[in-house]
């Protein structure tokens, strides 16, 4: 089984972001990057599926040349080889999906695994767009029907099961759990509760050095990635005002009525 898995470099969620002088970008000097946590879960699931069904895991990323670090992380987790589409300029979800469409056509994988969103832009678009452009079935937000503390996780019962050319995907829906069956090839996006990703071990980091990273560019793939989404302005959320203490419930009700105006 051939699994294509997408990974994106995102700014470390633990680092405080600074807005660039042009107000339309994030200041990148000294910024720390990590693998998008949702993609990390996709890589983990891809490795588990590969170990069960044989085959290979190919990871792909789009970004500046140093995105190789995130690809190398995925290779150290256990992916077999990597594809890097070198592009330093702006990019929106549509551009990413069109680039991935070309990679899909070259590699012809049995399944595409992607994080359901990237924690920087929070767009949730790339997976569904790719499925649409390829005319493939999609199953989004693959999860589990139990919490990670359950026996299921301990027994490593997967949220994605593949039998023949069918994938069964447990997904989170509003207020409950839904189980889908999709025909392969398909695009599956992963949610937080699907698995707990492994740490790349130090011997595997050493081995990952020798694995292949093949480079492409949008030009070499023949894709125009001029963004369709225009960023007008970035601003930080307003600072929260300090709270107030009230003496009793009567004062609270009065404030909710007259100041907050949430009750009448």
């Amino acid at each position: 089984m051939k699994i294509l898995c997408t990974v994106k470099r995102v700014t470390d969620p633990e680092v405080k972001l600074k807005i660039g002088a042009d107000q339309k970008s994030i200041a990148t000097d000294n910024l720390k990057y990590v693998l998008n946590p949702f993609d990390e879960i996709a890589v983990e699931e891809a490795i588990r599926l590969r170990d069960k069904h044989q085959g290979e895991v190919i990871v792909v990323s789009v970004g500046p040349s140093d995105v190789s670090t995130q690809l190398r992380t995925a290779l150290a987790m256990g992916a077999d080889r990597a594809i890097q589409i070198v592009h330093a300029g702006e990019l929106d979800s549509d551009g990413v999906a069109r680039l991935l469409q070309k990679v899909y056509e070259q590699e012809k994988p049995d399944v595409v695994l992607m994080g359901k969103l990237s924690v920087d832009n929070d767009s949730w678009q790339a997976g569904p767009l790719l499925a649409e452009y390829l005319g493939l079935p999609q199953a989004t937000y693959a999860s589990k029907n139990d919490s990670l503390e359950s026996d299921n996780e301990k027994n490593k019962v997967p949220g994605i099961t593949i039998e023949g050319t069918t994938a069964t995907v447990v997904r989170e829906a509003d207020g409950g759990i839904e189980t889908l069956k999709v025909q392969l090839p398909a695009v599956i996006t992963t949610d937080l509760r699907l698995n707990i990703p492994r740490y790349p071990s130090l011997p595997n980091i050493m081995k990952a050095k020798k694995k292949e990273i093949k480079e492409h560019t949008p030009q070499s793939l023949g894709v125009d990635v001029t963004p369709k989404v225009r960023v007008l302005k970035f601003e930080l959320p307003p600072a929260r005002k300090a709270g107030v203490k009230v003496a009793d419930s009567a004062e609270l009700l009065a404030k909710l009525r007259s100041e907050a105006k949430v009750i009448s």
């Binding site: 990590v34 150290a76 740490y199 790349p200």
Partner: peptide, 14 residues
Amino acid sequence: SEEERLVRASVARF
């Protein structure tokens, strides 16, 4: 090096 940064990040996370 990239490898040294990955080793550090993996151990830090553990």
